[in-house]
Amino acid sequence: MSAPPLLRAWRVGKSFGTHRALEDVTLEVARGEVVCLIGPSGSGKTTFLRCVNQLERYDAGGLWIGGELLGFREAGGRLHPLPEREIARQRRSTGMVFQRFNLFPHMTALENVIEGPIRALRRPRAEAVAEARRLLDRVGLFNRQDYYPAALSGGQQQRVAIARALAMRPELMLFDEPTSALDPELVGEVLGAMRDLARSGSTMLVVTHELGFAREVGNRIVFMDAGRVVESGPSQALLTSPQEERTRNFLSAVLG
C-alpha cells in the first residue's frame, strides 16, 4: 500500500464555450514528486494548472488535494459549490508561479512576499518579514528586498514570485511556463531556483517547454495534446523512448 497522492485528478474536463480544453485528464502527483507537463501550445497544460489552482472551474471529473475535493462539497448525492472564502482557503495549499510573474508593482519585493502570510494567514508581521527575508535569500535576492518590481530584471522578478508563492508554505507548487517570458540569458537563474526547490523535497507540478529541466529535475513527464493526456512516464524513459506517435512527433519537432 503506497501513500495516497497529494494531487489526484480523475477524468477532469473543462470547456470554454464549445471548445473542449480538457478531456478525461487523469493524473496523480505524489508528495515530494516533481512532475512536468509538456505538450504543444493549446494542449490544455496551462488550463489544467489553472483548474488545480481554481482560477478556472473544471466541469467534469474530480480534483483532490490531500484527499479534499476542490471547489465543491458533496452532501446527500448533490454538489454544492464552495463559497469564495473556502476556495481561498483551499488555494492556500497550492502556490502558483505565473508565466508573466504578476508581481504587485506597487509593492517592494519584500512587501510582495509578506502580503499573503500577513493578510491571508494572519501571521504576525515580524515573523512574516523574517521568513520572507529567508526566502528571498534562498532565491538569491536578499539584497534586492527593497526594490520595486520595475527595477528588477525578469529573472529576478520571477524569483521573487517563487519566494512569494513559497511564503504561503504550500504543499504543492504550480509553475505555469515560468521561463517562457524571460530573455534567454535569464532562464538559467530561474531554473536554478526551481532545481534547488526540487532538491529540498518540494512537490512540484511544472508546465514547461524546457525539456532539459524536465529530464534532469522531473521525476515524471506527462505529455498532453488536444486537452488529453497522451502519455506519461519517468522523465528519462519518456524523452528517450516515447511510446506514442504524437509524443515522438512533438519531441522531434522540439529537439530538432
Binding site: 489552482n53 481554481q54 482560477l55 469564495e84 472564502r85 481561498a88 482557503r89 488555494r91 492556500r92 497550492t94 502556490g95 502558483m96 505565473f98 508573466r100 504578476n102 508581481l103 504587485f104 502580503e115 499573503g116 493578510r119 491571508a120 494567514l121 512569494r164 508563492a165 511564503a167 504561503m168
Partner: peptide, 19 residues
C-alpha cells in the same frame, strides 16, 4: 493577472480589491 496573483496567495475578493 493581478487579480489572479492575489487569489493565488489566498487573498479573498475584498482583500484583493483593497490591497
Amino acid at each position: 493577472g493581478q487579480y489572479e496573483a492575489a487569489k493565488s496567495i489566498g487573498l479573498t475578493y475584498g482583500q484583493s480589491l483593497w490591497r
